[in-house]
Design a protein around this nucleic acid. Structure first.
Lengths: 213, 213
DNA sequence: GTGATTGTAGAACAGGTGTTCGTTATGCTT
DNA sequence: AAGCATAACGAACACCTGTTCTACAATCAC
């Protein structure tokens, strides 16, 4: 892949921005105007070079038939995840049902890079309400990505429902003889010990996403 | 959102497939052929309905100017972000240079949904090393998405370099008369006060991503 | 039934848009 | 200076494509 001329680089950038902005590719004359090029034939000329270099693909006689080859490869590494509800200290944790799995049926969905879910299929998202999970380094408004499991390995972070206290928390779970140790992610804080019968594992924490600004 | 007719549903599906297949939207006549519709005016008629229902957007006088508004617009909403370094308590915060902006020139990049960056151009990522930022509810190994700015509004979370202490932190910044208040995100913790000359704003925190499992 | 509403047909029009062609600069090699 | 590849220019052409118009069928309300 040779180095592009400055003009060609501007064109590629323009096409990218136009595409993600408007949702459809630019026409030759859009590029001409957007990159301050004097003639459509100059655009055509450089577009052909960009195609022969493998940066784009052109479809003859098709209006706006320009496809980006460099970036667009990654397009399907976005995974839709259903946001099935809130998680708060005093409220039961929403549990996914066959219904809520259907992305189309859920009121809200978010899209996350496939690297975050690592290809897991049964991932859902919860929005954190309240400051009760700061000991898990999780803030009000954070999004928690969960995987639906009924048991977790030692040391994994899980959404836990404490039946007796009627309380939901996110803790690292350690199974010990005759009791379960619930350790906050902030390891300076003291663990909580609970009876196995009192603990309901609702899911495993996959990731946390916090949007600040 | 009302019920779509069978024909309209076929059209939407066709547009989705065409778009993800070819990379550009179909023309009216593409839809006509792809959905076995007898006339272009019928396509036009139903497209207008779909637009008024909020399923698509049409751009007048623009060839192939159809945009999908529903969730299927996943095409290229992934944005590459350069991971330009680590952030740790005792080390200077890496600052982006024109070099590191070039996604191709950086050793590591990550891809995040466009919703996270909200279209900002000058976004980079730092990996957090150490537990020094737990008071900002940020853990060892977290990824912090930053925007390169030299000043922030009151209350915004920023990466701050304290010259005197030679220390980097992430705090909410409040400008007060003759001093700057640095407030941990965990609001139960006490603020830190610093001299304006001692504070260097290195960037604004956009988001935090933590991958747990 | 009548009339309104919705959906379908076919064709033609007008403007958008890719393409082509002859010509002229520009830069590098010999 | 001459030769040659690269790049730019402007205009015209031809097709693609959105749009519009009239006519007609199907459904429903009254």
């Amino acid at each position: 892949m040779r180095k592009m001329s400055d003009k060609q680089r501007r064109m590629i950038t323009f096409i990218e921005r136009f595409l993600s902005d408007k949702g459809y590719p630019p026409s030759i004359r859009d590029i001409q105007a957007g990159c301050a090029i004097s003639s459509t034939s100059v655009v055509d000329y450089n577009l052909n070079i960009l195609e022969s270099r493998g940066h784009i693909r052109r479809h003859a006689d098709v209006s706006r038939g320009i496809t980006l080859l460099t970036r667009t490869q990654t397009s399907d590494s976005l995974v839709p995840v259903p946001v099935i509800g809130m998680i708060a200290a005093g409220e039961p944790i929403p549990v996914p049902t066959p219904d809520t799995w259907d992305v189309a049926a859920v009121s809200e969905t978010m899209e996350v890079p496939r690297e975050l879910t690592r290809g897991r299929e049964d991932v859902y998202a919860l929005k954190v309400k309240g400051m009760s999970m700061v000991d898990a380094l999780i803030n009000d408004g954070d999004i928690v990505l969960m995987q639906h499991v009924s048991a977790v390995d030692n040391g994994e972070m899980a959404a836990v429902w404490l039946k007796g206290e009627k309380e939901a928390t996110l803790k690292k779970v350690y199974i010990e003889p005759k009791r379960i140790r619930l350790q906050p992610a902030n390891e300076q804080m003291k663990p909580l010990y609970a009876d196995p019968d009192d603990v309901e594992i609702q899911g495993r924490v996959i990731a946390v996403v916090r949007q600040v600004a």
